[in-house]
Every structure is written in C-alpha cells, then in structure tokens.
Simulated scan of single mutants.
Amino acid sequence: MTDATAAALDPASRVSLTVGGNAWEGWTSVDITASLDEQCRSFQIGITRLGPGGIDQVPIQHGDRCQVRIGQDLVLTGYVFATPKAHDPQSTAFGIAGRSLTADLVDCAAINKPPQFKQRSMRAIATALAAPYGITVLSQVGDGEVVADHTIQPGETVFESIDRLLKIGRLLSTDDAEGRLVLAAPGSSGRATDPIEVGRNTKAGDCGFDFSDCFSEYRVIGQHATGNHRNGAAANEVAGTATDGRIARKRVKVITESGNLTPAMATSRAQWERDNRIGKALTTNYEVAGWRQSDGRLWQVNQIVRVIDPILGFDRDMLVVSCNYRLDDGGSVVRMVVAPPEGYQPEPPAPEKRKKNRKKKGDKFEYLLPSDWEPNT
C-alpha cells in the first residue's frame, strides 16, 4: 500500500501497522493517543482514494493482534477493534482502529475467585487482577504499600478495581508500548529534550484556568473493620482532612471512601485531592509541529517538559499527561495535554520543598504551584 503523502514523510515518521508478520504503510490519516488518564492507548489509521474505483483489500479484521510503530519506535501493542469503510461518488475510504492489550482490563469485569485480598502489596493485587486476561504488570514504583483488605465490588471492571486500590495508595496506572499495565509515578519516563515554547515549536495552546472544582477544605470519611485491638467507635469512624489556603472563601468538599480505610490513608487521600484539583485547573492543551524532538526521540507521555508561554503566563515544568500523534492534510502534529506534576503526585511534596524556587519572573502561577519541579525523594 503506497500513497504520495506518506511517501513524502521522513522514514523516521512513517507509521506502520504489523499484523501476522506483515507490515502495512502508506496511511493518509493517523490518530494515535497515549494518556495517563485513559489507561489504554488507541489508534485509528486510514487511507482515502479519490476518484472512481476502490482500495485494495487489506486482510485485517477485528480481533487481530497488532503493533503500531512510528519509524522504528513501537508505540502500541494491542488488538484491532474496527475496520470502517466508506465511499461516495468522489472517493473511497478504508480504516483500521484498535486499542492496547490493556483494553480488556478497561472493558472487562474483575473475575478473581475468591474476590478478596488480605495483607498483600498493591503490585501483587494488581498482578492478580490482571492475570485472568493475560496482561503483564510492570511497576516503576516498587511493590507499593501492603493493603489490609481489598475486595472486588460486584460488576466492576479490572481497571475500576485497580484504580480504587491505587487512589488510596497514591499511585498511578497506565499502559506502555508493549501493552503492559504500568504502575507509575509522575515523570518516570524522564525529561523531554525540548521545551514547549511559543515562537519555537508551538502551533497553538489553550488553558481554561477553571478553579470551580477546587475547595478550601477536603474531608475524606470512611470505615475501618473492627479488630480486637480497637473499640467499635474508633474502628468504624475514620476521617482525614486537608485545607487549602489558596482558595480564599470557605468551600468544603466531603468525599466518602470505600474499603478498609485508616486515618493515615484518609488524610493522604484528602491531600491528594487538594493538590490534584489545583493541578487540573492549570491543565493546558498544546499543538506542536512534528512528532519528534530535536534529538530524534518521540514526544512521550509521562515526561517532564519545560513550558515557556508568555501568552498563557507559563515558565514552568509540566507533566505530559497525553500525546496524540496526528497526520492529515495539514501534516504531522502532536497534540499534548500538560499539567503541573503536583496534580499527579503519588504523595505531595513537603511544604518546605515547595518554597525553594518561587522567583520565576515568567511564570504567573507560583502562588499556586512551584514552577521548578523535582520528584519526591
């Protein structure tokens, strides 16, 4: 399969789909997305022929296992989910769409028997939950803390169960190019070589600066199973609180947490909610020309990138939350969602650490979050 547009691309940016040992190229449209929020990579590629006649049939159908590459870089391992076709008097179009191997964890129920895990690490529980669907678990954050009790709720999916588990433990989950479930921390893919910089590589940018989901106080409440060493009242009533002086007027958010909650877990969850919501208010969309950085590396999700944007008021380190590689008549671009890493922190940094670097003249949001970010140590 060939196409003039695809042939003009540099080989390092040519997209190939491999199924059954055969690699297909020449796509006129490409849409590949990796995101910390979606948990499952996806792709949609297609080719359009103008004028009469059809398109040579590609022997690919739903359910086929596949790999997607940009140049020599593997970006997705998964399954074909759809093969849309369309035609009109002017053209004929054929496409292929698919998702990562982890799609089965997003779509399918947690079916472990027995459905309860006691005194096991978060990594061990996630591995057990993913095992029935043949998904490997990779942890970039060790085993995580030991959980006293995690019970599958009736009808929940594997990822819903894992997400509920990791929220209490302040960890992230996503997938990688090989289709594995990844337990991660913000920035664990390293630092981007290039900044996102207005006037250099940025085609467009926008941020809503919407703080409607931020509160001055977060209260997390829940229950803990009664044990022999605890009285009933103390065991059943668990609460944790975090305040946020950056929100001027009184706004209280109460969150009910399920599971076997401890006071320390409740407080940590409240702190996570506080920092996550401020971070999301500064979440920004950028469109950058080309898929690769100046050193030849693809832009990657979960990288730390410097954002220099005097129009929006940023001169700070941000976390790449998602990368959407697109090819159409306008050429190849990557649409990235970036956010302050604090909004995705497994554990908030100490207040003393936050106050070290607060004199960046180009950044207007130091009063909310520091512009220079360092991972927790």
Rank of each mutant, 00 (worst) to 15 (best):
F94I: 13
S91Q: 15
Q119Y: 11
A131M: 08
G98T: 12
I125F: 12
T127C: 10
Q116A: 14
S139Y: 06
F117M: 08
G98H: 08
I96T: 09
A124N: 06
L138F: 10
P132T: 11
D107G: 02
A93T: 15
S139M: 03
A103H: 06
Q116Y: 05
G95C: 09
C108R: 10
D104W: 03
I135Q: 02
D104A: 02
T136I: 11
Q90T: 15
S100C: 13
A130G: 04
A97M: 09
A93S: 15
G98W: 05
G98V: 12
A131I: 09
A110F: 01
A93Q: 15
G134W: 03
D104C: 06
L138Y: 13
Q90C: 09
A97D: 08
G95T: 13
S100Q: 04
S91F: 12
T102W: 02
A97T: 08
A86W: 12
G98C: 10
A124L: 08
S139L: 07
S139C: 06
T102M: 01
H87L: 12
I135M: 10
L105V: 07
A130D: 03
L101P: 01
G98P: 06
A128W: 06
Q116P: 00
L105T: 00
R123E: 01
A103M: 08
S139I: 13
A110L: 05
P132D: 05
A109K: 13
R123H: 05
N112R: 10
D107H: 04
L101H: 15
P114A: 01
R99L: 00
L129Q: 03
